[in-house]
Amino acid sequence: MSLRVKEIGDVFNRIAKSFDKTRRKPWRCAIEAIEGLTEGRILDAGCGNGRHLLLLSSMGFRVVGVDLSKELIRIAKRRIKEFSLTNEAELIVGDIRFLPFKDEVFDGVLAIAVIHHIPGVVERVRTLKDMKRVMKPHAKAVLTAWSIWSLKRLWRAVMYKFKRPFSSEFGDAFIPWRLGSDTVWRFYHLFTAREFRKIIENAGLKAIKSYGERKKYGLFPENLVVVAVKIDTH
């Protein structure tokens, strides 16, 4: 399992530069994590090149970004320095399955397009439970993942399952990233809306909102968004 996760870190290190070029604009839904807050500490789990980190820290929040890819963290760090936000934003090279924080320290959590890179449902729920652990009571988390509902994605999931009938879950897929003449394959677990909401609730968070967010003009929204809150403290 960890081998697969290591591959994901390596893949993102390889594509970091080209990934950064097309990943500058923050997602609209990210703002839901700070709704009602004027200050506080936010965790950006799987922060990538730091696009949300930059937005929230420039609004006066203290933000900590964690990402497996050293190269993406380096890009994020450089940008934080450029914008003189080193007092507000911190970056850590880390694995979000093993969050390096004490209990109940964050007022809000972002996990934008990251849960779908974790192989295995048990591991995904365990990761979400660790996110819940570091959230303060009543803190909100905004989580997004790729939806399985597009012909192309569904086809990739079917092919993945067909090739590995006994060692995969339905929804697992390899998605290509074109790097010049090269193609790099990234692991995804593609979700149905119900499934995504279910793993979040299984981790003990309460989903208060779920919707689709569209980046392109497909028949269905490509991204699933869930806003969840930590109700109990255990």
Partner: peptide, 12 residues
């Protein structure tokens, strides 16, 4: 390293 803490599990 370069002002960035690296806090990975052993196998990574």
């Amino acid at each position: 390293i370069e002002a960035i803490p690296h806090m990975l599990p052993d196998e990574l």
